[in-house]
């Protein structure tokens, strides 16, 4: 039985990753799990300059999910390389940095710096953050801007390049195709949905930023449909991100066409979720005599 999968130039020992912004830098979960057991860990959205993010309140609970408006708070890529990376290189897993920026030049600077950092195995280009005014969702919702950004980044970044798409578009397949033709090695489908919640007692939005990104099981069926649609049109691997709480959700995504999956919001409720999901996938393959996880990718029967 094998859980190995390939993403671009990388071979991951298993298809379970942790989603950007939901797993810190791995250290925060050391009391519960060993990050080395995972296929990879994806770092919080990282920018060239430090960012303070949005004011409080930054989150609101919803039916089967949550809204967040953190707004890419991070101490910048230099801080990441100098202060955080040395503490996590010990993990025997792939380290993937989620990269965001104000404009094309910003993304390019960060990506080209990370290209030379050996321990960073891949970058996931965040063109889909719904919570910042600059450098996020506009690249993921405008085909021309996405093309321009990807071709610029591909020129300076030679390692594995993943593009994290926005689900806030009418035809996500078009953005998947652009990513593939501009040389991306894989796509993540997808980031959070733009949402909103209002306090009926104060008449105020529950988030300081008014709107925020919806995550959790509430979004799973929509992301499932998007993974399926993208699988029809691109050959590069698809990494599913959206409402994965249990191993069954992961299997469902593999059947829809995902090569790997990311555990996000689930980490907040069950800090061992990623490892339990991995165990569940292993058991499923064993129990059904499936030799390799690759054998079920995209195997939904239509």
């Amino acid at each position: 039985m094998s859980t190995k999968i390939d993403i671009g130039k990388l071979t991951l020992k298993n298809p379970v990753l942790t989603a950007s912004g939901t797993f810190g830098y791995g250290q925060e979960f050391e009391s519960f799990i060993d990050p080395s057991l995972l296929g990879g860990i994806i770092m919080k959205g990282t920018t060239w300059e430090p960012r303070e993010g949005n004011p409080a309140p930054r989150m609101a609970e919803t039916s089967a999910g949550m809204l967040n408006a953190v707004g890419l708070q991070n101490k910048g890529v230099h801080h990441f390389i100098d202060k955080i990376l040395p503490a996590i290189t010990k993990y025997d897993t792939k380290i993937i940095v989620n990269v965001a920026g104000n404009d094309v030049a910003d993304y390019v600077k960060t990506a080209s710096l990370l290209n030379d950092i050996e321990r960073v195995d891949a970058i996931e280009l965040n063109v889909s953050c719904p919570n910042v005014k600059k450098g996020g969702i506009q690249f993921g919702t405008n085909e021309n801007l996405l093309k321009e950004l990807l071709s610029a980044v591909r020129h300076v970044y030679y390692k594995t390049l993943i593009v994290k798409l926005s689900p806030n578009v009418t035809k996500i397949e078009d953005f998947a195709k652009i990513s593939e033709s501009e040389g991306a090695d894989a796509i993540t489908v997808a980031n959070t949905f733009l949402g909103m919640a209002i306090d009926i007692n104060t008449y105020k939005p529950k988030l300081s930023n008014i709107t925020g990104g919806l995550s959790g099981p509430a979004i799973k069926p929509i992301i499932m449909r998007m993974v399926y649609q993208c699988y029809q049109v691109v050959k590069i691997p698809i990494i599913a991100s959206g409402g994965i709480m249990h191993w069954q959700d992961a299997i469902e995504y593999f059947l829809a066409g995902a090569t790997a999956i990311q555990v996000g919001t689930a980490n907040f409720i069950n800090p061992s979720a990623s490892i339990e999901i991995l165990q569940g996938i292993n058991d499923y393959l064993d129990n059904n005599n499936i030799e390799s996880i690759k054998n079920i990718i995209g195997k939904v029967k239509i």
Partner: peptide
Amino acid sequence: ETLMACGLGACLCCAVPTKKGN
């Protein structure tokens, strides 16, 4: 009692502005 999501330092939902930054 700031609103929290993870309680573990991972999500940054619970930011408190301080003189040293969030």
